[in-house]
């Protein structure tokens, strides 16, 4: 695999109408907030679907490099990471 220069964001199927069907996009940013800001610039409307009051929407979780981002918009990212938007998980 060629070395990437930006974090790789996996677009959930319902959001692909905003990305013209693209399933995976690489965007810049050293934390999640910047990544979402870049997504919004490229695909307007994205932020509203992911965020509420400048934080991740309640009920949504973000996996960065396979781990749930517990630092929200401050979660660090780097060019190697994958970012996934998933339902929040609790447990019994």
């Amino acid at each position: 695999m060629a070395t990437r220069t930006m974090p790789r964001v996996f677009i959930p199927p319902p959001m692909r109408s905003l990305t013209e069907g693209e399933e995976v996009v690489d965007v810049g940013g050293t934390n999640l907030g910047q990544v979402i800001a870049h997504l919004e610039r490229r695909f307007p409307g994205m932020k509203e679907r992911l965020c509420q009051d400048d934080d991740i929407r309640p009920g949504l979780s973000v996996a960065v490099a396979g781990s749930v981002a517990t630092l929200g918009m401050l979660q660090r990212t780097n060019p190697e990471v994958e970012i996934h938007f998933l339902p929040a998980i609790g447990g019994g």
Binding site: P12, M15, G45, E48, L50, G59, L60, F85
Partner: peptide, 13 residues
């Protein structure tokens, strides 16, 4: 519930 409409992760509200 008269206030429930289908929400979808990543869809427009």
């Amino acid at each position: 519930n008269d206030d429930i409409r289908t929400e979808s992760v990543g869809s427009a509200p």
